[in-house]
């Protein structure tokens, strides 16, 4: 009897695992093959997933309204197709799962192209170049990337900077104290630590670094360094691999915006640069 019960439990467990696994492949398969353009068209709106604390790409104003470079861009793109854009706040670490499960249609929030992400999601043409920079303060006496030797460095968990740290270990990782960077959930915490002297440098997105430093009282105390050997980080829209029509439509709309000067206008508005960059497909 007892033996039988054990066997039964095992069989049940096995079945459960099987259902879960088969379900898993189902969802992934659906995301990779299904073209949802018709559904989106019928619904009249497309759902964009974003982290509403990512300044200045997409964030909430004091009155709760969403603004940002990506918000403006997404609205302008879908205006061309008469579609409304619903912005859905998501937890950034769950973005690919949200996309796969269909709770959002697009990831559009300073989402950069990486080889690991390319395996799981499709990307539009990149619309913005972002460098990974080293931010430090004058008092720490760091004059270049090499100056970080023996010092403590901070990065955001799951950020491009963190990936670069491992991909180009000679540049920073091998030099820093303990060969291990301090991980932060959000950039403001990293800046608090930088100001308190617990870390001497932050490796991060240029876009946010510029925004943050502009908000500090002692702007001239901060220093920002580039490294030419690092590839630029390209921001693009993330889609399910199956959404081929949606991808084509977004690319066409971006192309039109480059030609009629709307893209340049957006760059001027948010970054003060005259760039009209739109990457190749």
């Amino acid at each position: 009897m007892r033996f039988l019960k054990k066997k039964l439990a095992l069989v049940l467990l096995f079945l459960l695992a099987l259902i879960t696994l088969s379900g898993c492949t189902n969802l992934t398969e659906k995301a990779n093959t299904q073209d949802t353009w018709k559904t989106i068209k019928r619904r009249g709106s497309v759902v964009v997933g974003l982290d509403d604390s990512f300044v200045p790409m997409g964030f909430r104003q004091k009155n709760g309204q969403l603004i940002g470079y990506d918000i403006d861009l997404a609205k302008a793109v879908f205006k061309q197709y008469g579609l409304k854009v619903d912005f859905q706040t998501i937890d950034w670490s769950m973005k690919e799962t949200e996309l796969k499960n269909g709770t959002i249609d697009l990831i559009w929030n300073g989402y950069s192209i990486t080889s690991a992400r390319k395996k799981k999601v499709a990307f539009s043409r990149p619309y913005l170049k972002n460098e990974q920079v080293l931010v430090t303060k004058k008092q720490y006496g760091i004059k270049s990337f090499a100056g970080i030797a023996g010092k403590t460095l901070g990065v955001q968990t799951g950020s491009t900077a963190e990936t670069f740290l491992d991909e180009y270990p000679k540049l920073l990782k091998d030099k820093i104290k303990g060969k291990q960077a301090v991980l932060y959930d959000t950039f403001p915490n990293a800046f608090i630590d930088l100001n308190a002297g617990r870390i001497q440098g932050i490796f991060m997105d240029e876009v946010y670094a510029r925004y943050y430093i502009n908000h500090e009282k002692d702007k001239s105390d901060y220093q920002v360094y580039f490294d030419k050997t690092l590839p630029s980080d390209l921001f693009a829209v993330g889609l399910r691999k199956g959404d081929k029509t949606l991808r084509r439509k977004i690319n066409q709309a971006l192309g039109r915006m480059q030609q009629d000067g709307q893209l340049a206008k957006l760059n001027k508005k948010w970054f003060g640069t005259a760039s009209n960059y739109l990457g190749k497909d």
Partner: peptide, 23 residues
């Protein structure tokens, strides 16, 4: 509930903190 994208009290505070760079 922040993990499933719901905006509760603490998240509202976090959003304001990262926008205005103040605690």
């Amino acid at each position: 509930v922040y993990v499933i994208g719901l905006g509760d009290l603490l998240r509202a505070g976090n959003v304001a903190t990262s926008r205005d760079v103040t605690l």
